[in-house]
């Protein structure tokens, strides 16, 4: 929609109303008015210009300032953990460790419990006796 309020404005249609027009005897009135408004609003316009200049790249850059150090730190921690971690035990080793824990074979206990030696099905009472001693 085209607007021409300014160019159409001026002397009123009703005789006498032009007396209320501030520019009737002061042709520069509206120019001064415009200048004052623009001067008053300049700080806000500048603030908006600065906000509008924030481009996608700038947004990514500002994000990268947080993300990159975070990712580097996370990678360093992960690398440290990987390097310091011992070789994970195999499934068989784990089973042996578990068995050793359950059934320690020390200097005075060279022989395996009977319930392990026999090929019969495990007897619950025998297992409990061997492990807990009752």
């Amino acid at each position: 929609m085209m607007h021409d309020n300014e160019t159409r404005g001026g002397p009123g249609r009703t005789p006498g109303f032009e007396e209320l027009d501030p520019s009737r005897d002061d042709v520069w009135y509206w120019a001064r008015f415009q200048d004052r408004v623009m001067a008053e609003t300049m700080p806000e316009l500048l603030r908006r210009q600065r906000s509008a200049r924030v481009t996608f790249a700038q947004v990514m850059e500002s994000w990268s300032r947080l993300l990159v150090p975070g990712m580097v730190a996370a990678a360093a921690v992960a690398a440290t953990l990987l390097l310091s971690q011992a070789e994970p035990p195999s499934i068989n080793d784990s089973a042996v460790v578990l068995e050793e824990l359950m059934f320690p074979v020390g200097p005075g206990q060279e022989e395996l419990p009977d319930f392990l030696v026999s090929g019969d099905a495990l007897d619950r009472d025998a297992v409990l006796f061997a492990v807990e001693g009752y």
């Binding site: 309020n5 300014e6 008015f33 408004v37 623009m38 316009l45 906000s51 509008a52």
Partner: peptide, 17 residues
Amino acid sequence: SEGDSAAFGQLVLRYRR
């Protein structure tokens, strides 16, 4: 809204009276 002073100036020009 993006801080274009010429555009805002035109709005002022259009509506000042």
